[in-house]
């Protein structure tokens, strides 16, 4: 890669990446009631990370975010499977989900669903898979 002065790209990236990441988290959490969910949330997160890689180069971002994305994908899968296995503890069939409303100080009443944990699994897998694929192909000589 040739060296250029891409000051504008880097400055906008540092701003946009955080907006993207925030939006991704919103998509993930809002998925149960509005358009969104683990899949699209994961893709947007991946887009933000790819953007950072493009702006700052592989070496720097690898240092800043020291995550092994293959492991991340597997962790996501593990979370998803464990939410399924967890329902055995309550004598329910595999992947039974439940939800409830809880009152928290400061936040007020919030709906918590076990499906959310499953979605987090999906989210991690998608992030891990997408980044693994893109980085591997991009770095291949």
């Amino acid at each position: 890669m040739y060296k250029t002065n891409d000051l504008i790209l880097r400055t906008t990236t540092s701003l946009i990446a955080f907006i993207l990441l925030g939006f991704a988290v919103y998509l993930l959490l809002a998925g149960h009631n509005s358009p969104g969910g683990g899949f699209i949330g994961g893709l947007v997160t991946a887009a933000a990370i790819v953007l950072m890689y493009m702006a700052y180069g592989i070496n720097l971002i690898d240092k800043i975010i020291p995550i092994n994305y293959r492991t991340l994908a597997l962790i996501g899968l593990l979370i998803a499977v464990l939410t399924g296995v967890g329902s055995f503890l309550f004598n329910e069939p595999f992947l039974s989900q439940t939800f409830g409303y809880f009152h928290f100080p400061f936040f007020g009443e919030i709906e918590l669903a076990t499906a959310m944990i499953f979605d987090v699994g999906v989210y991690f897998t998608v992030v891990g898979v997408t980044i693994t694929i893109i980085l591997n192909i991009a770095n291949d000589q």
Partner: peptide
């Protein structure tokens, strides 16, 4: 417990 039918079906 969700309003997003697609997502409820998926997860």
């Amino acid at each position: 417990g969700g309003h997003n039918v697609v997502n409820v079906i998926l997860v």
